[in-house]
Design a protein around this nucleic acid. Structure first.
Lengths: 69, 69
DNA sequence: TAGCAAACCAAGTAGAACTTCGTTTTTAGC
DNA sequence: GCTAAAAACGAAGTTCTACTTGGTTTGCTA
């Protein structure tokens, strides 16, 4: 796979769906929009550190797991 | 330790010094300034995804290792 | 002393993250 | 095949913060 944003996005999508969480739910709990979550999962852009922290918290995983590919 | 930026910064500093690389050298190889590297290591701010990728490449480690704490 | 590495601070800039609005596609259940 | 929910997708605008610039200061060590 091409770049880090894309790898991260795919990993996020996998972990999110495995937990049965919708983009809408993740967006609400991280104070982001659905579009931003969608953009992150598609590798359009990567989240800032603050949001990276929030995302990991909602998924209840360590941040490094989001980079485990 | 407080937040993700600080944890990341401390981890980066550890890995960098272990490899005997100076901030100046890391800055040059990542097209960042010394001040930016210093700010990242002190947890003032976290790097963007593109720079995160460059940093890991220079240190010759996987990105997840930078979050292994 | 001299020189290098790094901390530190304030102020400005650039650009990517993020939003908003709207449309289209995919997926899953009935 | 119909419906609705979930998500992809695009364009254009805004906001935030990563990053820079310039300078001073501290700590180390030869």
């Amino acid at each position: 796979m091409a770049n880090l944003k894309q790898q991260f996005g795919a990993r996020l999508k996998l972990l999110r769906t495995q937990k049965g969480i919708t983009q809408e739910s993740l967006a609400a709990q991280t104070d982001l929009t659905i579009e931003s979550i969608s953009n992150i999962e598609r590798g359009i852009f990567g989240p800032r550190f603050g949001n990276l922290e929030k995302i990991a918290a909602v998924l209840n995983v360590e941040v490094k797991l989001l980079f485990d590919f």
